[in-house]
């Protein structure tokens, strides 16, 4: 039997397949809590969770916060603006101060890849990675995989295509690690400037045209172009990107009838994904959001079981 022994969730890269499955199985039971009339359980009663979002976030922070409330935790939210970071305090000093307030778990988003590994090694309290730069976003990948399993029964042997700005995407990296560990066939597609070839080494198929990514896919996950992380121009124009890599009524003809369409949000409608498809019957985008709550409850629960 798999037993959870980690005080932190930093990256799916660290987890083995059984640990990932344990989180997903646990999430299935927490999903039911949100479907009850009384949507709260006393799992984190008396525990304090600090949401420390150095990089802005709406959906992830809201999802974590609601997950914590459903688990009966006491919650403190700290944003980078207005925190002592803006007064020149180091990250480690800030989180040590948070821990000194008897915080049990710190949920952090930070723009620097590896920031969580650094603070986790210095703290006794649990650390959950809510996104670090372009590196990792484990709870997003977990909710993606949870949603795929809910729709398709399993991820093993499924063809999953991730399309868009792979280079700057922590979602893509986390999805790839999780999906490969659970036996999916992963294809990535996008402009070649945004398509790191190193993923081929772990068995990911890298293609530079949309048709090749769509034709056998059981799942397509579309990513937003992350202009905020792009220091230089990687392709000529947004219009050109939409024409070549956008999923719309025209390009959707390459898709299998039962393929599902995913997007981690926020969507740039009409760029990577047309509105008619984002709101269409094959879209599972809002179910991803619902499942994110369950997955985050499961992660917080498992971490809280480790002293």
């Amino acid at each position: 039997m798999t037993v959870w022994r980690r005080k932190d969730l930093l990256s799916l890269y660290d987890l083995d397949a059984d640990e990932i499955r344990l989180i997903l199985d646990t999430a299935a039971e927490f999903k039911k809590v949100s479907e009850r009339r009384l949507k709260k359980v006393p799992v984190l009663r008396g525990k304090t969770v600090v949401n420390f979002f150095v990089e802005p976030s709406t959906r992830t922070r809201t999802s974590f916060e609601l997950a914590e409330q459903r688990l009966s935790a006491d919650i403190i939210n700290i944003a980078a603006v207005g925190s002592s970071l803006s007064k020149g305090e180091t990250l480690l000093d800030t989180v040590k101060n948070i821990e000194a307030l008897q915080a049990d778990i710190i949920v952090m988003r930070h723009s620097a890849a590896g920031a969580h590994n650094f603070i986790a090694s210095h703290l006794k309290c649990g650390v959950v990675n809510a996104g670090d730069g372009a590196h990792s976003h484990p709870t997003q990948a977990l909710l993606d995989i949870f949603t795929i399993i809910e729709k398709k029964g399993s991820v093993e042997g499924l063809n999953v295509s991730i399309i868009g700005d792979i280079r700057h995407s922590r979602v893509a990296r986390s999805d790839i690690w999780g999906l490969i560990k659970l036996g999916a066939n992963v294809t990535i597609a996008g402009p070649s400037t945004l398509l790191p070839k190193e993923f081929e080494k772990i068995g990911v198929k890298v293609v530079d045209n949309l048709e090749a990514a769509l034709e056998d896919a059981d799942v397509v996950n579309l990513l937003r172009i992350q202009h905020e992380r792009q220091k230089v121009s990687y392709f000529p124009s947004v219009n050109e990107y939409a024409n070549i890599f956008g999923l719309n009524e025209n390009t959707a003809k390459y898709l299998k009838k039962d393929a599902i369409i995913m997007h981690p949000g926020p969507i740039n409608r009409g760029v990577e994904l047309a509105s008619s498809l984002a709101d269409g019957p094959r879209s599972v985008i809002l179910e991803q959001v619902t499942n994110g709550l369950a997955v985050r409850m499961a992660v917080l629960y498992l971490i809280s079981t480790v002293e």
């Binding site: 039971e29 809280s304 002293e307």
Partner: peptide, 8 residues
């Protein structure tokens, strides 16, 4: 989810 020894 209702145990009195979560974390103990």
């Amino acid at each position: 989810m209702y145990r009195d020894d979560i974390g103990k």
